[in-house]
């Protein structure tokens, strides 16, 4: 009996450090995996090099009486009626190219919320780099449509505005005050009351890049384009779980195969 007890104690003494060491090793391995990042996506690599699947026109008429998911004519400066990029769309493409194109966050394989909930773009991982850029042009156009109906002169001075010196302004309804938005990104330092569409788009892309950075970005967000902690109220979780009217428009990008 005593021998059995002694054996059990010795076994425990021998195994416990091993169990502890095993836990430590597992913890260390997990940390290494986290540092390496998400696993490569073989299908993504194959598809990124392929060409665009086509040119997609933005819908400009409602499909029914209550359908609000269409763009007005001013939004053709993002995507023209033949599906090619307008001057604003070209600006977005240039921005992403300058950020490294396939190596930029905008074209990352694993952007949360694309092929996972809320399934903004289920086919994301199958899209070519060209199609992913096309998605971003469509996405920013969707934001502009909801924020300003693509009107570069839009100025929100309604009675509900908290700060009359800093009303939301322009294509993307950014801060009027330069001081109020300069911290958001290097392209957000344009003059107070600036209405230039290109300035608004570049600053918005700066903001979006910070959102995509997730916890390491300015906003310490979840890395999703929506719903997330971001400048635009309509993309925040309290407003909607799937991007609200902006999400509805974004999901109409045909290559994504999203359910509206």
């Amino acid at each position: 009996m005593m021998k059995l007890l002694f054996l059990l104690v010795i076994t425990g003494v021998v195994l416990m450090p091993s169990a502890h060491a095993e836990q430590k090793t597992i913890g260390h391995l997990n940390e290494l995996v986290r540092q390496v990042g998400t696993p490569p996506c073989a299908a993504c690599e194959a598809n990124k090099g392929s060409k665009s699947s086509g040119r997609y026109k933005i819908p400009m008429t409602p499909r029914s009486k209550n359908d609000a998911t269409y763009f007005n004519k001013d939004c053709t400066k993002f995507i023209k009626e033949d599906g090619t990029y307008g001057v604003w769309g070209e600006e977005i493409e240039t921005y992403i190219n300058k950020k490294g194109r396939e190596d930029s966050r905008f074209l990352g394989d694993h952007i949360p919320g694309m092929s996972s909930a809320p399934f903004t773009c289920p086919n994301w991982k199958k899209l070519s780099a060209d199609d992913r850029i096309n998605f971003w042009v469509w996405m920013i156009a969707s934001m502009a449509m909801v924020e300003s109906t693509c009107d570069v002169k839009a100025l929100n001075v309604g009675s509900g505005i908290p700060d009359r010196t800093d009303p939301p302004r322009g294509l993307m309804q950014l801060n009027s005050l330069k001081s109020g938005r300069s911290w958001r990104g290097p392209n957000c330092k344009f003059a107070t009351n600036g209405m230039g569409a290109i300035d608004q788009i570049r600053c918005s892309m700066d903001i979006m890049e910070q959102v995509l950075k997730g916890k390491t970005g300015h906003y310490k967000s979840n890395g999703m384009i929506f719903p997330t902690n971001t400048y635009w109220e309509k993309l925040r979780p309290r407003h909607s779980s799937n991007g609200g009217p902006i999400g509805k428009l974004a999901r109409r990008f045909p290559p994504c195969g999203a359910k509206e």
Binding site: S179, F190, A191, T192, N193, M195, N229
Partner: peptide, 21 residues
């Protein structure tokens, strides 16, 4: 949060806005 910002505390010169204010 997202919409409350105070500053910057440097660069306090009077700024001319894009529309002339």
């Amino acid at each position: 949060g997202q919409n409350i910002f105070i500053g910057p505390f440097d660069d306090l010169e009077i700024e001319k806005t894009e529309d002339g204010c």
